[in-house]
Design a protein around this nucleic acid. Sequence first.
DNA 1: AAAGTAGGCAACCGCCCCGCG
DNA 2: TCGCGGGGCGGTTGCCTACTT
Length: 376
Amino acid sequence: MGRAPCCDKANVKKGPWSPEEDSKLKEYIDKYGTGGNWIALPQKAGLKRCGKSCRLRWLNYLRPNIKHGEFSEEEDRIICTLFTSIGSRWSIIAAQLPGRTDNDIKNYWNTKLKKKLRDMQTHMAPPSLTTSQSHRSNPPPFPVSSSLHQFQNQPFHHQPLSLMHKDLNMMTYSTYTPTLTSPATPGSFSSGFEIMPNISNPLTNYSSLFQTQECLVGSMHYNHPAVKKNLNLIMFGSEGSCSTSSDGSCNNNQISYESRRSGNIKQEEMGMGFQLEDPNQKFMMLNYGNSSSAAISDDHHNYINNNNQWGERPNGYNGNNTRFGDYDLEDVKQLISSSSTDINININNDNGSISNSLFSVDENKTDHKEKVMYFY
DNA sequence: AAAGTAGGCAACCGCCCCGCG
DNA sequence: TCGCGGGGCGGTTGCCTACTT
C-alpha cells in the first residue's frame, strides 16, 4: 500500500500554466505569502493545481528576480567547477548563481554544457584516455559524503575542497595511469596528452575542467611553466561509475558513483587528493585551505582500507591517526620529503604561497607512477 | 511545402529528509 | 520514539519549436 497522494489527482489540472493561473498564483503569494503550506495554497488561491505544481511554478518562473536567457561564461565556469566538485546538486549550484533556478541549471547542463565539454574532450583526450580501464583501477582518495556534513558550517578554509564553492582553484585528481608511448616533448605530456594551444576554454582564469567519458581532465594553460616541464600526468576526479557494495565501500577497486540517497558514496561529493598506484605506497591528500596554507593527510588508511577498497573514514578528517590540518609550506615540504613513495615532488614557490605552487614529478623519470599535482 | 528529427525547456514524478504531533 | 506528511530535490517526460531533408 503506497502513501496517500498529496492532492486529488483526478481534480487537479496538469500541463502548462495559463497566464490566468500565473497571475492568480502571483497575486496570492504577493498578498499572503506561501504560508509555509504549499499543499493548502492552491485551494486558497482558487487554483485547480497540485501544491507541488504551484511551488514549482513559483520557484522556477514567477518569483521575483528570476533570470532567464543566456548563461554567461562566468556562470558556465561556476557550474562546471561546482559540478566537478559536488556533482548534480543543482540546488547548491543554483544558490551560487543569483537569479538562476536549479531546474534552469539542470536543463542547461543536460542540453548544452555537458555537450560543450564533451566536444572539448574529443579534441583534448587521446583514445587511450577514454578507453583505458587503468585509470579507474583504484578507488578515489576522497572522503565519503556522510563525513562531509560536519564541515558545512565550518570556516571556509577548514572545509574539504568538495564543499568549497568559492575560489575553487585546485584541480581534482583521479587515478588515471597512462601508458607512456613516447618520450616527453616540450608542450606535451609524456602520456601523449597533448596541450591544445588554441582550445576554446570557457573556464577562463582557472584550471579548466573537461569531462571525459570516464574522468575529468584538467587542462593546463599552454604558456604556463609547468607545461614546459614535460610532466608525465595530470589526474583529476573521475566520474566513472562502478559497482559499489551496500556499506559504501567500493569493490573491485573501481570508483564509486552511487546516489547519496542509496546511502553510498558519490564521487563528486568527495574531497580531493591523489593516490599512488601501488597500495603499499603512501597515500597523500592535499586539501587546499587558503592562500597561505594547505592541509595534508598522509594517512593512507583513512581512506583506503587494507583490501585497498574505498571505505568510510570512521572519524571524518580528524581521526586520531590522521595527520591533517593546516600546514604551511615548510610542513608540506617536510611531509613530501619524508614520503616513502618514489614520487619526486618539486615545489615551485614563486610567490611564497602554497596556493601558487607546482607539485611536479621528476621530469627525467618515465615511470608511469609519477604524478603531478598542479594548482593555480 | 511537408514530414521527420533534434534540441530546449517547463512540468511532472517519485523518492528522501525532516519537522511535528 | 515513531509515524505521518509536507517540502525539497534530482531524474525524467513530453510538448513545442527550430532545423533538416
